[in-house]
Structures are given as structure tokens and as C-alpha cells.
Design a protein around this nucleic acid. Sequence first.
RNA 1: GCCCUCGUGGUGAAAUUGGUAGACACAAAGGACUUAAAAUCCUUGCCAUUUAUGGAGUGCCAGUUCGAGUCUGGCCGAGGGCACCA
Length: 849
Amino acid sequence: MQRYNFKTIERKWQKFWDANNFFKSEIDKNKKKFYCLEMFPYPSGKIHMGHVRNYTIGDVLSRFKKMQGFNVLHPMGWDSFGMPAENAARLNNLDPKTWTENNIAIMRGQLKLLGLSIDWDKEISTCSPEYYKHQQKFFLEMLNKGLVYRKENYVNWDPIDQTVLANEQVIDGKGWRSGAIVKRKKLNQWFFSISKFSEELLSGLDQLQQWPNKVKVMQRNWIGKSFGCEINFQIKGNDPVDNIKCFTTRPDTLFGLSFLALSVDHPVAKFYEKNANFIKFKNECSKTGTTEESIAQAEKIGFKTNLTAINPLDKNIQVPVYFANFVLMDYGFGAVFGCPAHDQRDLDFALKYELNVIPVVKPKDLLKPYQIEKEAYTGPGVIFNSNFLNGLKAPEESINETIKILEKKKIGIKKINFRLKDWGISRQRYWGCPIPIAYNKSGKIVKIPEEMLPIKLPEKIDLNTKGNPLDHHNTWKKIIINGEECTMETDTLDTFVDSSWYFLRFCSSKNNDYGFDYDDVNYWLPVDQYIGGIEHAILHLLYSRFFMQAIGYKNNKFNHTEPFRGLFTQGMVCHQTYKNDKNQWLSPDEVDSEDGKNYFIKKNPKSIIKVGPSESMSKSKKNTIDPTEMINSYGADAVRLFILSDSPPEKDIQWSDQGMISAYKFLQKFWRMHIEILSQIKEKKVGLELDDNTLSKFTNLILEKIEKNLNNFQYNVIVASFHEIYNFLSKQIKKDITFSVLLENYLKILKIMNPIIPHFTTECMENLGYNNKELFWPVLDKKHVVEARANIVVQINGKKRCLINTVINIDENNLITTIKDDPAIKKYLSEKKIKKTIYIKNKLINILI
RNA sequence: GCCCUCGUGGUGAAAUUGGUAGACACAAAGGACUUAAAAUCCUUGCCAUUUAUGGAGUGCCAGUUCGAGUCUGGCCGAGGGCACCA
């Protein structure tokens, strides 16, 4: 018997799809569209199992939607700017462009082996001038709309990568890529005014019903809206400083004021620049570092100024002003008022410097005398010790009432504050999109005129310089604009800018005049299903949402402001880790095991290996499995089948060789059954009515189930259903079935299986005489789903006692009569009176005795 | 500290949304076929005596209900996110 030869068959159908333009998508306003997008890859050189999982999930959905008659857009591109290219180029003495293009060629080939239903005509690459010239236009457009600005700012400086990082790219005080401890440095930087859209970005989340709640919560926290009040404190005497503004969410505790605390970067600090003790204190603060641990453990310290602030509600309350290490300049006004009784931080500070602790919120139902010791009281209660605020219910009543009073007295203003900060986009790097800006001799900003775009990166560049290579390229830096000699901006854009609009580009990937065409975008957008890793929950997704706001700002040409209607975040692919006796990582192909418990090095069977926990596949831990190797050994369909099996797509999956092999074996045994079915159909057997119906019923039930699971992303359950199909069919075909009924049902089953194992099923269908040029999802035949008989669970006092097979829709009295005759139940019912019965039609009966 | 998610056999997991717990697979054990191996097929969650038959059972403790893996409250544990955010 012939084995299933995946190598020739998979190639055959990939060519067929290609030749018939199977996955080309064009705008067709008579058809319902479906835009399926997976996060595009960085071209590192090789695809990894994470890609395989990501793109298989998207492919299954795309194929399913296409079969359902949707006009599907399923494109692919490359997130191809970024630092690894520069580093690799330096190592291998290549230029980043060549390195990147080679990688793309390799990875494109690898992805094609998977048989993905991608419209390769729409392929884009962010490092090509064809792409980034439009990005430069967006930059200028946004600049004209006042959404881009330049300012001198403290930045997060990564000393290894020699570049600036966005706040989001600093993780635990370390660079997200290099892992180096980030330093503070003052630089002139370009910013996107993302914070201008804080409110829109926050409220937009409510529309996103098909996003995981987890991601929405993370974004909400990130945007960090808080309601409060801006309060202006007068400074006593004739100091050069006469007032200090503070932001507070608890204006109702103002009578508990005992100090003001300022950030060391607060404008007031300029009066202390020459004070040796202040300099010392400032250094002390910066030493604390930015790591999570140090922040948590850092002691609250302060530097006392000679200023005295006056409580605006009561001029007799006068308090000292400190600089303090726990106040941040980039939130609120970089100044807070301290109310130690009701804020733990303030209390810690007050205890250290022996400042007043005045409680102003009293808990209800107080049992013992009320005294603040080492713990601040932050719960609800009633305001006291507070003159005209006394008696207000805190916090629900007191905050709003106090704000009203403060506004009336012109002391404070109601204010909403966001945690979200503007997005710093300048990077001191070569391999990124050049910023279309130059500076004239007097240092003024000059916009590059549109006809001069794109500003291309220079091809020949010396990468072996410190800092930004573009800065050392003297000919590139010189540019003449309107006859005036200028110097190019040498910073390039953060690569997150590239990925913030690529989903728009796919809609009009060939448009030369503009990044996209509004008609195209308004047809395809929003992306109906976006699929990718949870690691992009905040940055990439928030930036993309911002771009829609910014590009559509003041022109209202977009029909939708949210780019991604559905979001699915898939889990990681994990594998066990292995270490030798010297604590060095070992790759899975270096080790072997006979019992699945004890492992040894293949070359040295006596060696002992420590088996570590299963972790997400990474080069550094050497626990990777090469997808192309797997495709070559088992075929794309087997790999697709395995990567979807066992674990739900949103959870992590364990790679197992046994699992991979079992997926392969499944296809082989299904193929053997297929050959048998073929010969039965050729025989033109005419069978018995009963077995025909059993088959039709099964087919339609499994269709119903798989369709539901496709819509819910329960792909692991679908793979389980495939096994059920085999287990059922391999037995059923041994019975008498009319050949035409067998053909019809089997064809239906192959179509249902098509999105997951497309090559295999297409080949099988061709064997049956199907032409494969059109492929539609089978229609559920309800008459076969309706059962003639039902298995009813019989419970006595809530305990299952037996199953009874009866005709469908039997009424309760008839059922009880039948049950009383059943030998398995008789013994429970003998001479007992039935108190009550609960009957769920065709499902269950509970008899209480 | 705050927020979110999740606890089901040796393992990955299913469970029509309150109605037969453990589908489907992996592993292990036993069996069939075979001179033998591979491949293939069959059986097996736990306890009580054995296939029949009972019993317990979805992290723990209560509650609602005829009936709870599913709903409510409390506790324990794991994972993730945020954090001197005023």
C-alpha cells in the first residue's frame, strides 16, 4: 500500500494555489470582507516555533473564513528595521540592508513551506524606501498638526546600545533589549503627543469587545487616569518663589497638611543648584537607582528648603517645604502636599523628619481611641478636624465637595491627570527611518519639502563608530533646502513607529502617492482578527491605536478609529531545558533518554543531565526546535496539526517529540483509511438504510461542533475531533453504506478538516474527483442532527443510577413507567413512594424518594 | 501593596454554560498478532475483593439548588501586570 508522500503532495498543492491565485484579495464591495492579520515578524534569519504557531492559527481562521465566502485579506510583511541588523552587519562585515534582505528571502521560503494562505503580492518591508517614505510624510503631517514636537528632556540612556529608550522600553530599570542598567541623560528629542489622546485611547477600549480583558486592563492601567485637584500653595515671605502648584486626588485631606515635597527636578531646584548639600542630596537620590527592588526598599529621604508654604484653607497652618526622593517630576507638577495621617509614603517621611501627623478622616464604627501610629488610614470615613469640611463622608462626598469649595475660593481647580507620557521617538541609530528634518545654520528646524522625500539612508556607512553612525557621515548630513545649506537630523525613528501603521499599508500596498488609500482602508479596516503575542499588549497596540487617532486627527476621513476589532494573544511554545554537570545548556538533539525520565548526552551515555523546567523556546537556553527540520521530516500538515493540538491556543504549549510523531502517524493511518474508502466508493456498493443514517448523523454533528470551535479559537478541541472522526469512520466503513452516501459524507468531512490540514485534504478530495478550484464550507443538514432516540440519565435522589434509551421527546409519565420496569432501577424504587420528579426533556430525570 | 487570570487523573486537556466529570491525546502497565523486534490493534483514572457491583472524587471550607467543575462567600496555592502616580 502506498504511503502518504507529503513531500510531493505538499509541493503540488502549494504550486496549485499559487498558479490559480488562490489567496489574492481584491476589493469587492458586494462581498463581506474579513481582514486577518498576524503580527509581522522581525527578520532575524530563521523562523521559530512561535512563528509557526502564530501563523498557523491565523491561517486556519483565514482559510475557514474564505470557505465561508468572505473576501479575505491575509497579508505578510517584515518589521525589518532595528538594531540586530546593525550588530550582525558589524560582526559579519556586511551592510544591514544585505543582511536583512538575505534573512527575508530565507524566512519567506520557510513560511511558504507551511502552506500559508497568504497574498504574497501585498508583501511589505518596513526598511524599504517604498515603505518609509510614507512614514516620513506622516511625520511631517503630524508635525503640521502639532502632534510632533522637539524638547530637551531627560532620557533613558542605554549605555550598551548607545541609544535612547522609551519609558516602556525600560523594564526594571534595564534596557528591554540589551539588559543594561539605564542611565539618565539630557538630550534634544522628538516626541509624539500621544498623551493628547489619553481620553480617546482610554474610552476607545470600551468598544473593543473582542479583545482579551487582560489586555484592556493593562492598557487602562498604563494610561492611568486619575481625578483630582490642582492646588496652589502660597510661599511665605519675599522668597524668589511665591507659589507652588500641587496635584492631589485627596483635596479633602488638606487640613491634614504637614509639608510640601518637591521632585529634585522641580523648577525650584534652580535656586539650590550651588548648594553643596543639595547637590549631595540629589546624587544620593539618583543612586537609589530605578530597579524595582531598590524602589521598593528605598528609604524616604528629604532635603529641607528654607521655604514655608501656607495652607490656603487656613493661613495659620504653615508648613516646611522639602525636596524628596519619592516625588517624580514627570507626573502631575512634580510637587505633592504631604498628609501623613492618610498616606503611607507621607507618614514614613513625616516620622523620619518628626513632622505633624494630623488625622482628618475618622473611620465609622470606631471601637478604640483613634490614633495614627505607623500605619496611615486610607479607608472610608467621616471628615473631622477640618473646620467647614467636617462631617462630609469620605471619600464619595468629601472630594467633590472640597473641590467645589476650593474652586469657589479660587484656590484650586478640578483636574484630571494621566500617567501616560508622550512618546519619545528619536533613536541614535543608523538602521531606522530617517527623520525628515534638517537644521539651518542658525539652528532652526527646517522641514524637508515633500518633493525631496524620501530621505534615504546612505548605503555605504561606517558602523564601527561610537554612538550614531549617521552623525559621522558628513556628506549625507549636508542637504540644500530652497538654496539654503542645512544639516540633516541624524536621529532615526523608533522602530515601533514602523509597526504602528503597517496594517494600513497592507490595504494599499502599491500606492505610490500616499501610505494608503482612504477608500481601501475604509473597506478593509478594522482588522477583524489580529493575532500575536501578549508581550505587545501595551506598546505596539497602544501606538497603533494612537496612529489611527493622529492620522485621522482633524480630517475625519477614517470610518473607524480603532484599528483592531478582534485581538487574540497566543501562548508561547515551550520545551524542557537540559544542563550538563558544568551547568551549561544543552540542546534537545544533544541528549537522549531511554525511559523518558533520565537523560544522558548521546555521545556519552554515562553522563548525567539535569532536566530543567519547561520554558519558552529561546536560543540562549538552547531549547529550540527548528521548524524547517520538522517540516522536512514530517510535513507541513503534521506540524500544523501538532502545533494546534493538546493545548488551547491562548495557553503555552509544550513541545513534545512524541506529540509531533503522533500527529504524523495520524495522517499516515488516515491515509490508509482513505485508500480503503476510495476502493469502497469505486465498488459502488448499495447498503442498508440504518448505517447510512448513522454516518450522516455523525458528519453533521461533527460539522456543528467543529464550526463552533473554529469560531471560539478552540483549535485543540478540533484536533481531538479529527481523532474522533478517524475512530468513528474506520469502524463505520466496515459496515454497509451506500457508496453515494459515503462519498457525500466523506467529502464533507474532508472539507471540514481542510483549514487545519489543507494539503492532505485537498489531495484526498482530488482522489474523489473534486476539482478543488472552489472550496466552500459545508452546510449543516439539520434533519440529520435531530436524534430519533435519546439516552436519558436516570438519577435517584440526585445520584446517577443508569442510562435509559428511549424514543425522543417521551413524556414524563411514559418515561417513569419505563423506568419502573428497568431491572437496574427496580431495586431502588421497590415499595418506595416517589415524592417528586424533575425531568429535563431528552436529557435527564431525577427521582426523589 | 494594588489589579487581573487560573487551580480537573502520572501529563496536556475536554465538559452542549447548572444536568452522564475526565472526550481526545501523550506517558506507563498488561494483552493480541509475530520465531523475535518494529509497526498495528485492544484493555486500564482512584479505593473496596476480580471484568460484575458499590463508594469517594474537579485546591480547601461553607452556602444556594432536586442537582455545582460550572453560581455565591471565605481560605490556601500558582502565574501575569502595575507601582514611591500624589
